[in-house]
Design a protein around this nucleic acid. Structure first.
Lengths: 133, 133
DNA sequence: CGTTACGTTTACGTGCGCGTCAACTTTGCT
DNA sequence: AGCAAAGTTGACGCGCACGTAAACGTAACG
């Protein structure tokens, strides 16, 4: 089987982050690498979590928000109260993400429109130059 | 006709930002309110720009990136060189936004899946409680 | 004419997400 | 045994996007 755990360098290379970032995330309780002596070993679980962390960041969530959300993905036995709270949180994030998607579609359409305008202007300018030359 | 320009408070209320934020954006050359004596008056153009600024922020762009992009939306007479540079920038942002949209769709699907899992778990727990009671 | 409300500048403070040393083990060659 | 490579723990620094407080201007109102 392929390597079960990754050391810090392998983990960094795999996700394009720095060691500092991984230690920082551990300090913030986003990751929980196991220890072999003093060194960190990142498990499959850490890899899954880091993927979600980086994704969450791209969508503008804070590390603290992400930390709470990760519970939903890695909760095996949580208390009902906590699970239901996390569920509510997830609903909010889902709503947020769907709103973001809708907004994104509008923004993309508008940007495309503007770019078409810009492209036309550029082509006219090029024409003018050619004629002038 | 409705008020042509907004003072700082009206502008803040309209966009749910603080005066500090508006002054900060002006200092960063994202907004250009006109002056009536010492006071700022925000024009329609400022409103359009602020809308784009806030949208850009939601999508994780920095104020500096947004500033450059705004040129595309408000360029009437720019030089060809500058326009074409801005165009390239816009292409990159467009690609970024479309990638984000794709990623967002995946994330939404995954989160929904997890929530279904959580919902099932919650319903089982509720059942257990009812039976136990 | 005072004071209240709204706005302004200047400047230092703050939270987040790391970057960047410094000083120290631990590990693996040779 | 010696030494470089890789990793570790502090601890301070930094850029961004504002928050916040101080001190001042000015315009309106009773």
């Amino acid at each position: 089987m392929t390597t079960e755990t990754l050391n810090i360098r392998e983990m960094c290379d795999a996700f394009e982050v720095t060691p500092r970032t991984l230690r920082f995330y551990e300090a913030k309780e986003l990751l929980f690498p196991i220890r072999e002596g003093q060194k960190r070993l990142f498990t499959k679980r850490d890899r899954a979590r880091l993927k979600l962390i980086l994704r969450g960041k791209r969508f503008g969530f804070s590390l603290e928000e992400i930390r709470k959300l990760l519970d939903l993905y890695h909760m095996n036995d949580g208390q009902e109260e906590q699970l239901s709270q996390t569920y509510v949180l997830a609903e909010m994030h889902l709503a947020d993400m769907e709103a973001q998607k809708a907004e994104l579609e509008v923004a993309i359409a508008e940007l495309k429109e503007q770019m078409a305008w810009g492209a036309e202007k550029l082509s006219k300018m090029a024409k003018g130059k050619t004629v002038a030359a």
